[in-house]
Amino acid sequence: AEKTGIVNVSSSLNVREGASTSSKVIGSLSGNTKVTIVGEEGAFYKIEYKGSHSYVAKEYIKDIKDE
């Protein structure tokens, strides 16, 4: 089941290729951006990003809701 969340950062949140802080950064999301969460892996959520799937750190996503 998909969930949505809100990016909870003051500046921007790195979007990564994989579920690791050493993964390549492929983009960023600004605070209060709504994201669609399709899964989770460790400390990361797998999200829909620009037509494919990428990862963001869970600690920076708030207001998780089931869609």
Rank of each mutant, 00 (worst) to 15 (best):
residue 51 G to P: 01
residue 43 A to V: 08
residue 50 K to Y: 09
residue 27 G to Q: 02
residue 34 K to H: 08
residue 7 V to C: 05
residue 29 L to K: 01
residue 16 R to M: 15
residue 14 N to F: 12
residue 53 H to M: 09
residue 57 A to W: 08
residue 27 G to L: 02
residue 21 T to P: 12
residue 19 A to L: 04
residue 53 H to P: 06
residue 28 S to T: 14
residue 5 G to R: 04
residue 40 E to A: 07
residue 30 S to C: 14
residue 25 V to W: 05
residue 9 V to E: 06
residue 37 I to V: 05
residue 62 K to V: 14
residue 18 G to D: 08
residue 47 I to T: 01
residue 34 K to G: 04
residue 45 Y to D: 00
residue 13 L to V: 15
residue 47 I to F: 02
residue 62 K to G: 10
residue 37 I to E: 00
residue 59 E to H: 09
residue 52 S to H: 10
residue 41 E to G: 03
residue 39 G to T: 03
residue 17 E to F: 07
residue 22 S to R: 10
residue 20 S to H: 08
residue 7 V to H: 02
residue 64 I to S: 07
residue 56 V to A: 04
residue 30 S to Y: 10
residue 30 S to N: 10
residue 65 K to A: 11
residue 18 G to S: 13
residue 24 K to S: 07
residue 15 V to Q: 03
residue 4 T to G: 05
residue 6 I to H: 06
residue 62 K to E: 09
residue 61 I to M: 04
residue 20 S to T: 10
residue 49 Y to F: 12
residue 3 K to Y: 09
residue 23 S to N: 04
residue 39 G to Q: 03
residue 52 S to D: 07
residue 38 V to L: 12
residue 65 K to I: 12
residue 31 G to H: 15
residue 11 S to K: 11
residue 15 V to F: 02
residue 36 T to A: 07
residue 26 I to K: 04
residue 37 I to G: 00
residue 67 E to S: 13
residue 42 G to C: 05
residue 32 N to C: 14
residue 50 K to D: 09
residue 32 N to K: 08
residue 62 K to M: 13
residue 36 T to M: 09
residue 15 V to A: 03
residue 11 S to Y: 10
residue 1 A to E: 09
residue 13 L to Y: 04
residue 10 S to H: 11
residue 30 S to K: 14
residue 14 N to T: 12
residue 29 L to F: 04
residue 37 I to Y: 01
residue 18 G to T: 12
residue 22 S to Y: 09
residue 40 E to F: 05
residue 62 K to A: 11
residue 23 S to K: 03
residue 45 Y to M: 02
residue 16 R to L: 15
residue 40 E to C: 09
residue 64 I to Y: 09
residue 42 G to D: 06
residue 59 E to R: 12
residue 12 S to Q: 11
residue 41 E to T: 08
residue 63 D to M: 15
residue 67 E to K: 13
residue 52 S to N: 09
residue 46 K to A: 07
residue 67 E to D: 11
residue 41 E to L: 08
residue 38 V to M: 07
residue 3 K to A: 06
residue 66 D to C: 14
residue 7 V to A: 05
residue 67 E to M: 13
residue 56 V to G: 01
residue 64 I to L: 10
residue 36 T to C: 11
residue 40 E to R: 04
residue 16 R to G: 02
residue 50 K to G: 09
residue 48 E to N: 10
residue 7 V to K: 02
residue 18 G to Y: 14
residue 25 V to I: 14
residue 22 S to H: 11
residue 39 G to A: 07
residue 67 E to T: 13
residue 47 I to P: 00
residue 32 N to I: 05
residue 4 T to N: 07
residue 41 E to F: 09
residue 46 K to I: 15
residue 19 A to E: 02
residue 10 S to Y: 08
residue 19 A to D: 02
residue 57 A to T: 05
residue 54 S to P: 04
residue 21 T to C: 15
residue 63 D to T: 14
residue 54 S to K: 10
residue 58 K to I: 05
residue 64 I to P: 06
residue 11 S to D: 13
residue 31 G to K: 14
residue 4 T to L: 09
residue 66 D to E: 13
residue 10 S to C: 15
residue 66 D to R: 07
residue 53 H to R: 05
residue 40 E to Q: 07
residue 17 E to V: 08
residue 22 S to P: 03
residue 33 T to H: 06
residue 24 K to Q: 08
residue 58 K to V: 04
residue 45 Y to R: 01
residue 25 V to T: 06
residue 67 E to Y: 10
residue 21 T to W: 14
residue 35 V to M: 02
residue 67 E to A: 13
residue 30 S to M: 14
residue 56 V to L: 04
residue 25 V to E: 03
residue 53 H to G: 04
residue 44 F to P: 00
residue 13 L to K: 02
residue 60 Y to W: 09
residue 52 S to I: 11
residue 30 S to A: 14
residue 53 H to A: 06
residue 60 Y to D: 08
residue 20 S to P: 02
residue 24 K to V: 07
residue 43 A to I: 09
residue 52 S to R: 13
residue 17 E to Y: 06
residue 7 V to E: 02
residue 17 E to H: 06
residue 20 S to V: 04
residue 41 E to Y: 09
residue 22 S to C: 13
residue 31 G to F: 13
residue 45 Y to V: 03
residue 65 K to V: 13
residue 5 G to K: 04
residue 23 S to D: 05
residue 58 K to A: 05
residue 8 N to R: 13
residue 35 V to G: 00
residue 33 T to K: 05
residue 45 Y to N: 00
residue 6 I to V: 11
residue 48 E to T: 10
residue 38 V to P: 01
residue 14 N to W: 12
residue 35 V to I: 09
residue 57 A to Y: 10
residue 32 N to P: 05
residue 54 S to A: 15
residue 16 R to W: 15
residue 24 K to F: 06
residue 41 E to K: 07
residue 59 E to C: 12
residue 17 E to D: 13
residue 59 E to L: 10
residue 20 S to R: 05
residue 55 Y to H: 01
residue 37 I to A: 00
residue 26 I to F: 03
residue 21 T to A: 12
residue 4 T to Y: 14
residue 52 S to Q: 12
residue 55 Y to K: 00
residue 16 R to V: 07
residue 48 E to V: 15
residue 42 G to W: 03
residue 22 S to F: 09
residue 52 S to A: 11
residue 64 I to D: 07
residue 7 V to D: 02
residue 60 Y to R: 04
residue 44 F to Q: 01
residue 67 E to V: 14
residue 41 E to I: 09
residue 48 E to F: 13
residue 18 G to Q: 12
residue 23 S to C: 08
residue 26 I to L: 08
residue 29 L to A: 02
residue 1 A to H: 14
residue 47 I to C: 02
residue 36 T to W: 14
residue 2 E to D: 09
residue 17 E to I: 10
residue 55 Y to G: 00
residue 28 S to W: 14
residue 5 G to A: 05
residue 28 S to E: 10
residue 42 G to R: 04
residue 47 I to V: 05
residue 59 E to D: 08
residue 52 S to F: 10
residue 22 S to Q: 11
residue 56 V to P: 00
residue 2 E to M: 15
residue 11 S to P: 09
residue 7 V to M: 03
residue 40 E to N: 04
residue 41 E to M: 08
residue 58 K to M: 07
residue 50 K to P: 02
residue 46 K to T: 05
residue 9 V to K: 10
residue 4 T to S: 09
residue 35 V to S: 00
residue 64 I to G: 06
residue 5 G to L: 05
residue 50 K to N: 13
residue 8 N to A: 14
residue 46 K to L: 11
residue 51 G to N: 07
residue 9 V to G: 11
